[in-house]
């Protein structure tokens, strides 16, 4: 029995061993620890005390900021991620071939993503979308009144969505890499058969790139649900005016490190895990219908 297990799994285990060690020690054990902490009152400076379901109870019944953070995060994920992916995919196909100065453009379009969530970007975003910012010069063309887009509670979240979409470089690069993996003879053969660009896009490119679209979708959703740095850096560590940019993970961070409630933060983390896992699971279920693998 054991030897059969060993015989079957020897080679895979060899390949998996670094990951298995890593995931056990650095992810699984800390996750179990945080699951335990989710049922405790833990301020990090003293030993945790068991409180049962109290954290979850407070979270779901009497914490209005918790629901605000959920709302903000859902808007960010379901508006920002599709927009970002559409932009990334369109530019990847355009920048894949047939334009003069391709590598120049590719590099330029990747610049925003290189900047990352740095302090410089935080200052810049405030300059762009502040009262005195150039975005106001732009909208005044359309006769709109100048306002502080970044601090007005009804618009501040959208400035962060713009930031997300603007930093579309990472999914774009992944799309580009995926496009490159499509064997060029497929296009050549189609061309000989007299196929047009639309045919090539819908019958060759899109089906063959579905694993990559799927990957980008899953990863961007997982990432956006946990978005932290843009709001943390641009909002100066707060949730912005009227908590309008209080991302879920930012609130979790505030709970843990500003309010010293790591137990509550752990409970939030596990709640988030369930949400993300649900959406990811749904995506995997639908994937059977539209994702085509070569194997």
């Amino acid at each position: 029995m054991i030897s059969r297990f060993w015989h079957k799994n020897k080679i895979p285990l060899l390949f998996l061993s670094p990951w298995l060690i890593g995931v056990t020690i650095l992810a699984f054990i800390p996750m179990i620890a945080s699951l335990y902490l989710a049922f405790t009152n833990y301020n990090m400076l003293q030993a945790p005390t068991w409180v049962g379901l109290e954290n979850f109870n407070t979270m779901l019944n009497s914490d209005s900021r918790f629901f605000q953070s959920l709302k903000v995060t859902f808007i960010y994920v379901f508006l920002g991620v599709p927009l970002q992916l559409i932009v990334a995919f369109s530019l990847a196909t355009v920048l894949n071939r047939g334009v003069k100065g391709l590598s120049f453009f590719r590099a330029i379009y990747y610049v925003p993503s290189i900047l990352g969530p740095s302090v410089a970007i935080a200052v810049l975003w405030r300059q762009l979308f502040g009262m005195e910012g150039i975005f106001n010069d732009f909208v005044s063309i359309f006769g709109l009144e100048p306002q502080s887009w970044i601090s007005d509670p009804s618009t501040s979240l959208y400035t962060l969505i713009v930031l997300l979409v603007w930093q579309f470089g990472s999914p774009m690069v992944i799309f580009l890499a995926g496009l490159k993996q499509i064997p060029s003879d497929l296009y050549e053969a189609a061309a000989i058969d007299g196929a047009g660009p639309a045919y090539m896009l819908f019958k060759i490119t899109l089906p063959l790139i579905t694993p990559i679209i799927f990957f980008n979708l899953v990863m961007q959703i997982i990432g956006a649900f946990q978005a932290f740095t843009p709001a943390y850096i641009i909002g100066g560590g707060t949730g912005g005016t009227l908590d309008s940019t209080l991302f879920y993970t930012l609130y979790l961070y505030i709970k843990a490190f500003t309010q010293f409630e790591m137990g509550y933060a752990s409970a939030m983390a596990w709640f988030l895990l369930v949400i993300i896992a649900t959406f990811t699971g749904l995506l995997f279920l639908t994937a059977r219908k539209w994702v085509h693998y070569q194997d």
Binding site: L16, M31, A33, S34, I222, T249, A256, F257, S266, A269
Partner: peptide, 26 residues
């Protein structure tokens, strides 16, 4: 092909879904 492949794959995905802030202290 190996035993528990699907479960391990799910574990891999799940390991990305927990904010680092709560894993930090352990």
């Amino acid at each position: 092909d190996f035993t528990f492949k699907k479960i391990l794959f799910a574990v891999m995905l799940a390991s990305m879904m927990v904010p680092i802030h709560v894993l930090l202290i352990p």
